[in-house]
Design a protein around this nucleic acid. Structure first.
Lengths: 155, 155
DNA sequence: ACTGGTTGGTTCGATATTCGAACCGGGTGC
DNA sequence: GCACCCGGTTCGAATATCGAACCAACCAGT
């Protein structure tokens, strides 16, 4: 895991930064499990299906990245569980977006449902500024880093 | 890449399905590049910073998964470029969510900005059903698969 | 006291993935 | 002819990931 954005290859971009923290096979599944109430090692293990050693490594990395918080709830024997930090909670929209995409383009049936107010959620991105739905027409504005000092696209 | 959701380890879930398609180090960066207008191999190569052979493999996989479409624009010499399919376009909210998280929790400065109607986007998830913003209070409804036949949490 | 089970890991050796760098073949510009 | 671009392949080395076994500490039952 690179600690700084500009240590990553390719375009300097916070998507790359996010993926560097959370873009491996298990990280988001771990966040999903913890958000569903699986706080203990064995619960997360079962929920994700990750190998034990991978789980240990990813849990430590996520704690180090500030996504999870490790709480020792017993010292003898040493026992800990894991909780989402603020940063981890802020990942839930990513999960929601992935789930929506998976529901539409991968899954046979959506097995985990998100509810609020008693109905199933179907969500859209809405711009806070103008209140409009964000769709394909979004203009992507890529700042031109051709002036020296920004080093955007390492060749 | 598993073709069926139930070949994946852990909880049966479309998030896992989505990550199986798009959850590796380069896939979402490739989608980002294509969405930014980088359609040719060399452009995507430079934009992502991926090794050439990885890029070839991921492009093929994404085409196979229906996220990208490969268009031959010349036969002699053989030249192709890559475009987002409907499925690929539907991934943009995932990128948006990741970017927002990266901006807040990883990046120093957000270098790529999304605009529409001339202003920078700040987005929220809004439920299509009731129009309310989706926040942390969302209730997660995990269907109980304890009855036989669903096999939810392989032990 | 002995047995078996649970919990949160670590260790191991085998296998799979990923890497950068070099190469390639067709085509174009000079 | 010669260099260079383009979209890849090929290579061997390095790294990550895997499942399975092991472990230390504790607890509950007998």
């Amino acid at each position: 895991m690179a600690t700084r954005l500009d240590e990553l290859p390719g375009r300097r971009c916070s998507i790359a930064g996010a993926l560097d923290v959370v873009g491996d096979r298990w990280a988001l599944l771990i966040v999903r499990e913890v958000s569903l109430g699986a706080h203990r090692f064995s619960e997360i293990l079962r929920g994700t299906g990750a190998p034990r050693e991978r789980l240990t490594a990813r849990l430590n990395a996520l704690v180090g990245a500030g996504v999870l918080e490790r709480r020792e709830y017993s010292q003898n024997p040493p026992r800990a569980d894991y909780h989402l930090t603020r940063s981890g909670l802020d990942l839930l929209p990513v999960l929601q977006a992935l789930m929506q995409w998976g529901d539409r383009h991968v899954a046979d049936t959506p097995p985990v449902e998100l509810h609020h107010h008693g109905h199933r959620i179907a969500a859209s991105w809405v711009c806070d500024v103008c209140g409009e739905r964000i769709g394909r027409e979004t203009e992507r504005h890529v700042p031109d880093h051709s002036e020296p000092g920004h080093g955007p696209l390492p060749r």
